[in-house]
Design a binder for these strands. Structure first.
Length: 481
RNA sequence: GGCGGGGUAGCCAAGUGGUAAGGCAGGGGACUGCAAAUCCCCCAUCACGGGUUCGAUUCCCGUCCCCGCCUCCA
């Protein structure tokens, strides 16, 4: 068995066979840095982060490239409103994006190319298209001649003649055909501009991804990813530009993910129903938020809703609870790796099937159930059980943290530091509580337990005595839209 | 209008031509002074109507409803 991915271009699951043996090359369209990232932005980022981590888990060396569009109309507009240079806006929101994604546990890309850093590559691509008559210049603007590329529409399965034209085609008077799109835009007064063979101006949106992906990954790289909303026209145009210019395959496999919804609509800045991603991470935490993102197959829509985040938080807690117990019972045991094998195999099988992450997570539940069954024996000190619990815990960390990025260990470690600090205090209170319990003064004992609970300190009475730990405080403040 | 994706238990969500994973919530039980955590048990006939088939939730046709793209968008 090996990984298969649903490829939007061929509309079927295709085996993942990398161009270069043992190496995987991935390009994902990144953001236009002009506003706060919202919850919708996190979905693709987390999905492709998991894909990247999974490919590494499967033994591939992965080169992961995701760009930043640092010049476009919205950036210029925002800069004008604030009376600052566009680069100020772009830099500010690039930093915010990166900081937010780091908080979400997304690994930084190997290359994060900027559009403004690749003008020469874009110029070369545009010049090549003009030479071949696939693009034309009109007063400093350069347009791609859509009808010159016979494969146009193959990604989004559209017939050129079926495409409905809006009433407000930009530059309709200059284009040969309303479908043609800009490769280079001549500078309007006051706009940022760069020199080019066609005069001062700036690149069209689509050209950057064609130029940058190939620059850093080469022709025919393995996986091109992005949101389903980018399939047309953005990705369609990327293909057209590259393949018209070079005549070879641009990207081998296209992976698209569904949109995040808020209520019955797509979450989108233009609709105005966005929830700040930075806030969402703060409120729900990296692990729970990622579990929510991963709760549905990546091509289906996913609704942002409190109840679902709470479900995800409950799942996360089940995993951390087991891990905490496992560490306590079997931290120094020699792990028995064989017990975990069936779960790792099931996990791998699910992931191999077009990243069926909901099923993959179900295998984690099975693993945790199995671990919990053995926990009592492990706590009683039985060597076999301790080894098995240790083996299952290790597998949980491998799958949960290394591949899915759930931050189980970091969260427990962070809690452990606080617990060490609080230990003398909590110890004192528990001594008093034990004394009360010995006197059968349960009112006092329960008072102490309740007070501790209010501080996020959970007390469990075990046969061998009380045990306590810090639990995440229940969430009740939600991010605002 | 064109293209595409969906409608599975109270909620979320997999899946398959042979009577439906997993989670949350709920109910019952074990454990506990009571809890917590954990374990065990219970909880759906797959939008609707036809058809194909020995047999359909899964294939085909039709109907209804929802969503996305066709303009900037993760």
């Amino acid at each position: 068995m090996s990984l298969v991915l649903y490829d939007t271009l061929h509309r079927e699951k295709v085996p993942f066979v990398p161009r270069d043996e043992g190496r995987a090359t991935i390009y994902v369209c990144g953001p236009t840095v002009q506003a706060d990232p919202h919850v919708g932005h996190g979905r693709g980022t987390v999905l492709f982060d998991v894909l990247r981590r999974y490919l590494r888990f499967r033994g591939y060396t992965v080169t992961f490239v995701t760009n930043v569009t640092d010049i476009d109309d919205k950036i210029i507009l925002k800069a004008r409103r604030e009376d600052v240079a566009p680069a100020v806006i772009a830099t500010r929101y690039t930093r915010l994006w990166n900081r937010t994604m780091e908080a979400l546990g997304v690994e930084a890309p190997d290359v994060q190319p900027l559009a403004t850093g690749h003008l020469l590559e874009m110029h070369a691509l545009i010049a090549r298209l003009i030479e071949q008559d696939k693009a034309y210049e009109v007063d400093g603007d350069v347009f791609f001649r859509v009808r010159s590329f016979e494969g146009y529409g193959k990604l989004s399965r559209r017939q050129i003649d079926d495409m409905q034209q809006g009433d407000d085609v930009v530059d309709a008077d200059r284009k040969e055909d309303p479908l043609d799109f800009a490769l280079w835009k001549t500078a309007k007064p006051g706009e940022p501009a760069w020199p080019s063979p066609w005069g001062e101006g700036r690149p069209g949106w689509h050209i950057e991804c064609s130029a940058m992906s190939v620059k850093h990954l080469g022709h025919g790289f393995d996986i091109h990813g992005g949101g389903l909303d980018l399939a047309f026209p953005h990705h369609e145009n990327e293909i057209a530009q590259h393949e018209a210019a070079h005549g070879d395959t641009f990207a081998r496999t296209w992976v698209h993910h569904g949109m995040v919804r808020f209520g019955e609509e797509k979450m989108s800045k233009s609709i105005g129903n966005v929830v700040s991603l930075e806030d969402a991470v703060k409120v729900w935490g990296q692990g729970a938020l990622r579990l929510w993102y991963l709760s549905a197959q990546h091509r289906t829509p996913l609704t942002f809703e409190t109840i679902r985040l709470k479900d995800a938080a409950a799942v996360h807690q089940r995993f951390t609870t087991f891990l905490r117990s496992a560490r306590r019972a079997a931290r120094d045991a020699d792990a028995d790796t064989t017990v975990a094998e069936p779960f790792l195999a099931a996990f791998t099988a699910a992931m191999d099937d077009d990243l069926n992450i909901p099923v993959a997570i179900a295998t984690l539940h099975d693993l945790v159930s199995s671990g919990n069954e053995r926990l009592a024996a492990a706590e009683a000190g039985k060597a076999d059980a301790r080894a098995e619990v240790a083996g299952l815990a290790d597998a949980l960390v491998t799958i949960g943290d290394d591949v899915l990025g759930l931050a189980l260990v970091p969260e427990l470690d962070a809690a452990a530091r606080l617990e060490a600090q609080l230990a003398p205090l909590v110890g004192l209170m528990l001594e008093q509580r034990q004394a009360a319990r010995a006197d059968r003064d349960f009112w006092v004992a329960d008072q102490i337990r309740d007070r501790l609970a209010n501080a996020g300190i959970v007390v469990e009475d075990r046969p061998e005595g009380p045990r306590w730990y810090l639990a995440p405080v229940t969430v009740d403040d939600e991010p605002e839209t």
